[in-house]
Design a protein around this nucleic acid. Structure first.
Lengths: 195, 195, 195, 195
DNA sequence: AATTAATCGAGACGGTACGTCGGGTCTTTAC
DNA sequence: GTAAAGACCCGACGTACCGTCTCGATTAATT
């Protein structure tokens, strides 16, 4: 029941698609975003330039598709015994992703592009990269009775993610405060939202 | 004993400097960062291209100089009667700056550039745009005895700024939670850091 | 004893062949040779691109096949009562063909291509477009005793065709000299070759 | 009293101009017109592509400027003792130019382009490459009393140039008729124009 | 009827030149 | 020595065609 399926002509080459995504991944790390060009991607991937333009609009879009899967995986939420451990794991994971991961570098760059490119902003928003794992953490916290069911998840996501996100993007130095202490303080703040 | 002071030749034109800064300000809003070019700035300012390159290295640098003064002014901290009012004012001011101000647009764009341009990152870090007003708020809070003197200011800045910053840069929708509630929760979290 | 005859499989589509030839004819007039592309021909003809490449090597070759029949027809020699009338008719026909006919436009374009494409030159040479009608004119002139049998036909063809050809291809304005006068002069020149 | 002279800015580089013209000259002979690209010219000349587009519209225009001086020189008319010798020299010179000279190759290619590019046609017409030397030959012939002053020079140019031009562009083989015989015949034809 | 094989339209493929745009530099004259 | 002007070399942009390569679908002649 697939609509708009082209039934004629040569089908899209999955091999070329993979080659482009890998080329973007590699080049971002090797030469940086400023030197990441469509021409360079095509040459690295051994692919015609038109083939990229045929399937993606901008290099940000390619980068998004290349990095988003890894990004989601690195931020995936693995349940811990207690809520505070869940929060600590989330904060550590988010910080590691944003500051040391290749996918995190791609994400930060895309956030940068999103500031002056609405389409990139839309793409990133649709990924809900941080919202998803936060949702898992909060859901379990509600189940355990550690926070009220009425806690607004979106606001909680901003509270839990914000500090790490702010430090990573502004380059502010990592604080001497242990993650456990920060986690406890933020969890309390989330709880306070319903008071 | 003045070093590197040019004592001969035509002096730098202050008029040209202003023209360039205003041109950047205007163009950012009018055409967006993606279409902001050195050539365009020069033409808009009625200035030779070389004149820009003589005094600034990159367009990010020009943009920084053009926007930083306004940005600092818009984020300046004006003391309120109570600590919670101080925090509310800070949060509101930061959000307004980031989401609706022209200077805030410039700042967000620069944060974006900073993700792949170390020099821009260094510039932005040196401005300590959010750290300064947070410092004022926290200092008065300590004076009033509302928070312990031992509270790590850098971490507190991340907690207070992070949620607003995260929402503004990821385009997440403003929550239904009133600023006063958020302020109270975050202030409590800051207090928790020293427990 | 037929060589290389495919005895099985789908036979060549005469309909597609005609469609291609007509498309080339039409497009040459409509968009000009510079904008005449294989892609455009295929789309106009409603034919796959491969189908063109299967049967012709270059667009010049298609153009040749598309125009040569009409060209030969337009230059065909119809006997007149006297040799001078024959020559006048030939000159008029050649000029009309080269300056106003669609087939003549195709021919001029092909002559242009032939200057840097040996294969096109070979094709054009094999058509002997002007040589054939000149041969008719001269043969009848010999029969009538108007010129000597020893007249070198190739040289005569150059003398009779050259002036018209030169004017048509260089865009030189048509002279005020009546064709009849020119014909007489050239016919005399042809006669002089054997003196 | 020069009009429209720009008095400011960097002046046009004569060195770049020469480099482009020489590159075109060389490349035409080395790789042929079909492979003569703006990109290739720029690279060969060590010049930016934009620099070419700044001063010339098409590669045909560059080729024209590169070849026209040499072409005019090779076709220049050097007076002989008698009119028949003048004509023989002209015919030999024209044939040599068209069939063996590099400038002649460029000229033939440009004639080809002119068939579907009105601008090139205009350029070539303005050069009056063959008309000029013919004018010299005819003027002296009139002075000597060998032809009537009333002879239409344009038509005479077509008669004298046409046969050689036709043979060169259609690739027809050089006839066995000696140039002297042809020259005499064509000169008689020119004379006949006023009978 | 089933099989075989070459054709067909369609359209994606890797390439390459197009003409333009912007980057950062250089070379003029004017101040 | 700085300024405006504008040409310079360079290289990426996004597009258009090139000629080739799959696809599924046709269309005969051969089994």
């Amino acid at each position: 029941m697939n609509e708009s399926r082209p039934r004629t002509g040569r089908p899209r080459s999955e091999q070329s698609r993979q080659a482009v995504l890998h080329a973007v991944d590699d080049l971002l790390v090797e030469v940086g975003y400023a030197a990441l060009t469509m021409k360079g991607i095509a040459e690295r991937a051994g692919v015609g330039r038109q083939t990229i333009y045929r399937w993606w609009s901008t290099k940000a879009e390619v980068l998004f598709e290349a990095a988003i899967t890894d990004a989601a995986k690195e931020l995936s939420d693995t349940p811990r015994a207690t809520t505070i451990e869940d929060v600590v794991a989330y904060l550590d994971g988010a910080e590691r992703f944003l500051t040391t991961s290749d996918a995190g570098l791609a994400y930060r760059v895309l956030v940068g592009e999103a500031q002056h490119d609405a389409e990139v902003a839309r793409l990133l928003g649709s990924a809900a990269l941080f919202e998803k794992p936060v949702h898992g953490v909060l859901t379990r916290a509600v189940d355990r009775g550690d926070i009220a069911p009425a806690v607004p998840f979106a606001e909680a996501a901003a509270i839990l993610t914000g500090p790490v996100f702010y430090r990573a993007l502004t380059g502010a130095a990592r604080s001497e405060v242990p993650t456990a202490v920060l986690a406890a303080a933020l969890l309390a703040a989330v709880r306070d939202l319903t008071h």
